[in-house]
């Protein structure tokens, strides 16, 4: 690590839990972020600043005026721009040493599976259930940790699923892969700082994961922004889960 790099990450290196070795681990890491919206914005900004070496950014949307109330990686001048390109520029101004891969198209399952395998962690910042269930299946198969976050209206949820941790549940243990498409932020609304709260928690947990110390495996965190109330629920594996119970012994 050169002098400038050591100085940039001095406050990390000062921490006994990170140190120079931990920072090097972050610098050598690659993280796939699915969705460059409300959650993806703080996730990408913090991971770039924290010195994660390579970020792959997946989103095929363009910046719209209604995004700017909460998607803080994009600016007014970026309206009409691909979100991945707008995000790449913001990230480069924070950390020019960061490597980025932009994936500004709907990926076929083969391409997405390859990106999941390349990554040391995947952060789910997507805005729809089909993507959430697909990512769950792919990350479970590839044994890549999945840091899952979601937010709508005044409510947020957060959990980590990691096939590499004995007894970890998966997203499909928590929710059924059927039912309605569910509410979306365009129809239901979402309060701006909430996505910052949940996204920043995802960024923190991703750093924990990359350092080998995930803290949200087997737990579901719920945040209620109206009451400013966090709850932590125990989340075990579902013995009947079609994704993770099929080929893995039960131990939680």
């Amino acid at each position: 690590m050169d002098k400038m790099t050591a100085e940039r990450y001095a406050r990390h290196i000062r921490l006994p839990e990170i140190g120079a070795a931990g920072q090097q681990r972050l610098l050598d890491s690659r993280v796939l972020i699915i969705g460059m919206g409300g959650l993806g914005s703080p996730v990408a900004l913090y991971l770039a600043a924290a010195g994660v070496g390579h970020l792959a950014l997946a989103d095929y949307d363009r910046v719209e005026p209604s995004n700017l109330q909460r998607q803080i990686i994009h600016g007014h001048a970026d309206i009409g721009e691909l979100k991945t390109e707008s995000a790449r520029r913001s990230l480069a101004s924070i950390n020019p040493a960061l490597e980025t891969t932009c994936l500004p198209y709907e990926q076929d399952p083969t391409e997405l599976a390859r990106q999941v395998e390349l990554a040391d962690a995947v952060v789910d910042c997507s805005d729809n259930f089909p993507t959430r269930f697909l990512l769950n299946r792919m990350t479970w198969k590839a044994k890549t940790p999945l840091v899952s976050g979601a937010a709508i209206r005044w409510d947020g949820q957060l959990a980590t699923f990691d096939a590499g941790v004995a007894g970890s549940p998966c997203y499909r243990c928590l929710y059924q892969d059927d039912g309605s498409d569910g509410a979306n932020c365009a129809l239901e609304g979402v309060v701006a700082p909430l996505v910052g709260v949940i996204g920043t928690m995802q960024a923190q947990e991703t750093v924990n994961v990359l350092l080998g110390k995930p803290a949200l495996v087997g737990r579901l965190l719920l945040f209620d922004a109206r009451r400013m109330d966090w709850r932590s629920l125990k989340l075990g594996r579902n013995a009947g889960c079609p994704v993770c119970a099929a080929d893995t012994p039960q131990s939680l």
Partner: peptide
């Protein structure tokens, strides 16, 4: 019609 989980005493009870 809803995607849901049920929590009893701060623990999600597995669907099965």
């Amino acid at each position: 019609e809803v995607r849901y989980a049920i929590e009893v005493n701060e623990e999600i009870i597995p669907r099965s």
